[in-house]
Design a binder for these strands. Structure first.
Length: 466
RNA sequence: GGUGCCAUCGCCAAGUGGUAAGGCCGCAGCCUGCAAAGCUGCUAUCCCCAGUUCAAAUCUGGGUGGCACCUCCA
């Protein structure tokens, strides 16, 4: 398969360091607030990447961290007069619950910063020993960017001297403007950790390097992980700094492939907390089925910026509906794991840097063909078997169509309402049997008032929420 | 200001040298008691200009218009 490497800026054939094995590390959330749609997009993209890697036969180890040490967490804890852990546990649990709702399975490893402090200390000490880091008089430890000749090689950024000089005057005790904190000394009573470098907190960039080193890096390999992923904004400075730390502290580079997903905007507006229009996943989940959100957020290529809006979401839902209607047509029939040409093509499309558009087009065509054949030759057994196995393949590879199709179409409808609808449908069917179409149409109008749609099929009358 | 990305049908969106996938919407038809669903058919020459080439949406140069990052951020 090929992946677009956002550092080399080209599609590259994916060749893992160890044949048949792929390691993937993705920057996870800082658990100080609810997950927004951007977190959802990122998690979905890498969930898909993992699935595609697995479908290509790789034994994947996927790690995504939880940042549970951070100034914003501390601030929130102080504001709400709560314990840090209370905050982080709460948002971690919420994150897991919401990810599950959009079909994102848990990573194999989910390291927390608070559980990786020893690895961080070791990394800092290592950098100090090798002369890549220095402590300041006020107790901070900084990474010395001037010592790393490859610094900025990831983001291809150019140091701006004028800019640098301007800021130096108002700066701290850093040697270079670009130097970043590995350890921040903390003097007040807020959360502190006892380290060999004094009381304080680790720098954000350090966490990922340390966790990767602890959980994924193998002795003697050229790269700590095969693939490192995250949101597009993380390339600089976060990943740049991570890479510098790892490069200088160990004898391997951080990652062989870098994958960055595009951003989510809302109705054309940048989603950011400071602007106050952030869209929380938990709110979206109140209005829409998690799988619809999954389908919609994944329906555009992962590197494109994504403009979230209701119109497009509903358009995407209609597309997913078609998949579920086909499932409904074939409901209850057993399938086997038959290999089909469709499946091969689908995997081929997704193996090309996760070309979801081509994949969805293939799915649409498969659905049309299946429906057409079912219309004209309803008893076509081979086709049914193949279609069922195709649907199962889509479920596994993309996580689309995982629900019971009848429940999918009745999402969000109260059971009392369902009973009312079913009763009216029975009455209408009686009227239809008697060819009393006037009555049956009146009853249908009543049913439609519930915001549902009716469908008369050879298997009976079904309804769907509009 | 620096760096980088993008511009394809009303909307969403693939394709990156050989004469434009798919979805939504729309129109016509088949099916249906009527609908809905499903199916069939129809609808773009790819922001502008110049160039390279037998051949360009796809490469080069210029222009115009969007956007992102450079600060915590998925």
């Amino acid at each position: 398969m090929v992946l677009f490497d956002s550092v080399k800026k080209e599609k590259r054939e994916f060749i893992p360091q160890q044949e048949g094995v792929a390691t993937l590390y993705v920057c996870g959330p800082t658990v100080y607030d609810d997950a927004h749609l951007g977190h959802a997009k990122s998690a979905l993209v890498f969930d898909l990447l993992r699935r595609v890697l697995e479908a290509n036969g790789y034994d994947v180890t996927y790690a995504r961290n939880i940042t549970d040490i951070d100034d914003k967490i501390i601030k929130k804890a102080q504001e709400q007069n709560k314990d840090i852990k209370e905050i982080t546990d709460f948002y971690t649990a919420a994150f897991h619950k919401e990810m599950e709702a959009i079909g994102v399975s848990r990573p194999d490893i989910e390291p927390k910063a608070t559980e990786s402090l020893e690895a961080m200390y070791a990394l800092i000490q290592n950098l100090i020993d090798k002369g890549y880091a220095y402590a300041t008089d006020d107790g901070d430890v900084y990474f010395d960017t001037s010592k790393d000749s490859e610094y900025l090689s990831l983001s291809k950024r150019v140091q701006d001297d004028e800019d640098k000089q301007e800021r130096v005057e108002s700066s701290t005790l850093k040697k270079n403007q670009a130097d970043f904190a590995l350890w921040k000394s903390v003097k007040d009573n807020s959360v502190v950790f006892e380290s060999p470098f004094g009381k304080g907190r680790p720098g954000w960039h350090l966490e990922c390097s340390a966790m990767i080193e602890k959980h994924l890096a193998k002795e003697g390999s050229a790269f700590a992980v095969d693939i490192h992923g995250g949101g597009a904004d993380l390339l600089f400075p976060h990943h740049e700094n991570e890479a510098a730390q790892t490069r200088c502290a160990t004898n391997h580079a951080l990652a062989a492939y870098w994958i960055h997903n595009g951003f989510v905007n809302i109705d054309g507006e940048k989603m950011s907390k400071s602007l106050g229009n952030s869209f929380f996943l938990k709110d979206a989940l109140k209005e829409y089925d998690g799988e619809v959100l999954r389908f919609y957020l994944l329906s555009t290529h992962y590197r494109s910026n994504f403009n979230f809006n209701t119109q497009d979401l509903l358009s995407a839902k209609k597309r997913l509906d078609k998949l579920y209607r086909l499932k409904k047509r074939l409901f209850g029939l057993a399938h086997n794991d038959e290999k089909t040409e469709f499946q091969a093509k689908l995997l081929e499309a997704l193996s090309d840097d996760m070309n979801i558009s081509t994949a969805l087009a293939l799915i649409d065509e498969m659905i049309s063909t299946a429906n057409e054949t079912l219309d004209t030759a309803g008893k076509h057994k081979l086709l049914k078997r193949e279609t069922l196995s195709n649907l199962a393949y889509i479920e596994k590879l993309l996580g689309f169509g995982v629900k019971n199709p009848f429940e999918y179409f009745q999402w969000g409808v109260e059971s009392a309402t369902k009973e009312q609808i079913d009763t009216l449908i029975e009455k209408r069917n009686d009227a239809k049997k008697e060819k009393n179409f006037e009555l049956s149409d009146t009853l249908r109008d009543e049913i439609l008032k519930f915001g549902v749609q009716l469908m008369d099929t050879p298997q009976g009358t079904f309804w769907e929420k509009v």
